[in-house]
């Protein structure tokens, strides 16, 4: 039964090696998808290229369905799998700040690393900026400490907070994603920018 490493107490070295291999897969998938291009990523918000939506939601759905079926077949102990802790205030405010950073800088941390790997200069500056941002947060942490720890609701699942089964939420997410794919592809036709698509 999984997850393998925490259950079978596999050594730290192997764990780090697996981290590295998973990272390679992660970076490869991001780059192949085109997440190494800031104008492609930004296209999401102007409708000329909705790759972000397609890749992001397809990946989330695949992993979610995979976990649901693995759980059903007794292949994974979901009580060990990490579920993000929910601090309502900081999740929303942090998300808003990240959203602003996304549209201004054109990357998110993962994609910036991947873009820097193939020589995107703007991505390298973005990484530098991120380090500065984290340092600013660290230096001014006492100012935010209260907000950071406010409204703690634990490792709450959306399905539990809605009071529905995990599987039903899975179905709802899938239906919502397909609707978004469909709308997004219409948008891609309507806001087509050949000049940009050719360059990125």
């Amino acid at each position: 039964m999984g997850p393998i490493i925490p259950l079978f107490e596999i050594s730290e070295e192997i764990n780090l090696l697996i981290a590295f291999l998973i990272g390679i897969g992660f970076g490869f998938a991001l780059e192949q998808a085109g997440f190494s291009s800031s104008r492609k990523l930004a296209g999401m918000f102007y409708g000329y290229d909705i790759t972000v939506l397609k890749v992001f939601f397809t990946a989330a759905i695949v992993a979610m369905l995979g976990l649901l079926f693995m759980n059903y077949m007794g292949m994974i102990d979901m009580s060990i799998v990490y579920v993000n802790e929910y601090y309502m205030a900081s999740a929303i405010i942090g998300g808003v700040i990240m959203g602003a950073g996304f549209i201004i800088g054109g990357f998110c941390p993962g994609t910036s690393v991947c873009a820097a790997a193939i020589g995107k200069i703007d991505a390298m500056y973005f990484i530098g900026g991120s380090l500065i941002g984290i340092l600013i947060f660290g230096q001014t942490y006492p100012l935010w400490e209260k907000l950071y720890n406010a409204q703690y609701l634990g490792s709450l699942k959306l399905s539990d907070s809605l009071g529905i089964k995990d599987g039903i939420l899975g179905l709802l997410v899938i239906v919502a994603a397909i609707l978004m794919f469909w709308l997004g592809e219409l948008a891609e036709k309507r806001f087509k920018r050949e000049d940009i698509s050719k360059e990125i």
């Binding site: 405010i93 942090g94 998300g95 808003v96 700040i97 990240m98 959203g99 602003a100 950073g101 996304f102 549209i103 201004i104 800088g105 054109g106 990357f107 998110c108 941390p109 910036s112 500056y125 973005f126 990484i127 530098g128 900026g129 991120s130 380090l131 500065i132 941002g133 984290i134 340092l135 600013i136 947060f137």
Partner: peptide, 8 residues
């Protein structure tokens, strides 16, 4: 943008 993302 990076700084905002890092902070957020």
């Amino acid at each position: 943008g990076g700084a905002l993302f890092g902070f957020g």
